[in-house]
Amino acid sequence: MGRIEKLQELLQQMPDDSFLRHALALEYIKLNNDKDAKALFEAVLKNEPGYVGSYYHLGKLLERNGETALAIEWYEKGMQQAKAANDQHAYNELQAAYEDLVY
């Protein structure tokens, strides 16, 4: 059984698990399945806005697909969440990605 199948199986048992959704989204990105990856990242952030790592990956996915304005919005939201969580490392990564697009 491959990673995707294993993650899907685990998600059937724990459908709201943010870690599993995030991990599956990353696997989909490896296969250029941005549509399903985007849906998973959005689901993670809807259910758990403090899951800071998903903001960066969703933003990068949107950038690749030419959705720059939307990527900027997600980076901004992620920076707010990272700041609230006092996660300076995540904040710096999100800020760097944001500045690459804005400046």
Rank of each mutant, 00 (worst) to 15 (best):
A82V: 03
P15S: 01
H57K: 07
G59A: 01
Y56W: 13
I4L: 08
A82Q: 04
T68I: 13
Q13R: 13
Y55K: 02
L62S: 04
Q81N: 11
L70K: 14
N65R: 15
F19N: 14
E42W: 03
M1I: 08
V52T: 03
A85Q: 06
A25S: 06
R21Q: 14
E63W: 01
H57P: 00
F41Q: 03
G50Q: 12
G50L: 09
L101F: 09
R3I: 10
M79H: 09
E73C: 03
E9A: 14
W74P: 07
L101G: 07
L101Q: 07
Q8V: 02
A97K: 04
R3E: 15
N33E: 14
L11F: 05
D16I: 04
L94H: 09
Q88S: 12
D34M: 08
I72G: 06
A84Y: 14
Y51H: 10
R3H: 12
G78Y: 00
E67Q: 15
E27Y: 14
Q80F: 10
A90W: 08
E48L: 15
E99S: 05
A90Y: 10
E73I: 08
L24E: 01
M79D: 02
E42L: 04
Q88W: 13
A43L: 02
A85T: 09
L11V: 01
N86T: 05
S18M: 07
L10Y: 13
D87F: 13
V102E: 03
A71K: 02
N32T: 00
K83T: 08
L20E: 08
I4F: 04
Q88R: 12
G2E: 15
A85P: 02
A43Y: 02
Q12T: 13
T68E: 12
L45D: 05
F19V: 11
M79Q: 05
E9L: 13
S54Y: 08
K38A: 07
G53D: 15
I72P: 01
Q12F: 08
E67S: 07
G50D: 07
E93I: 13
N65H: 15
Q13K: 15
Y51V: 13
A69Y: 09
H57M: 05
Q81H: 09
Y55R: 01
L58R: 00
P15L: 01
R64F: 07
L10K: 06
G53W: 08
L62I: 02
L94W: 14
R21L: 15
E99D: 12
E73Y: 04
E42G: 00
K46D: 00
Y51G: 08
L10N: 04
D16G: 00
L26I: 10
G53Y: 12
Y98K: 09
M14F: 14
K83P: 06
L10M: 12
E76I: 10
W74R: 09
V52E: 03
K35T: 15
R21M: 10
Q8C: 11
A43T: 08
G53C: 11
L94G: 03
E93H: 14
K46I: 02
E48P: 11
Q13L: 13
E5I: 09
D100M: 08
G50E: 07
L101W: 02
G78H: 05
E5G: 05
K46Y: 13
T68A: 11
V44P: 03
A96Q: 11
A71H: 01
D36C: 02
H22M: 10
K60H: 13
Y28F: 02
E5T: 05
P15N: 01
S18C: 12
L62Q: 00
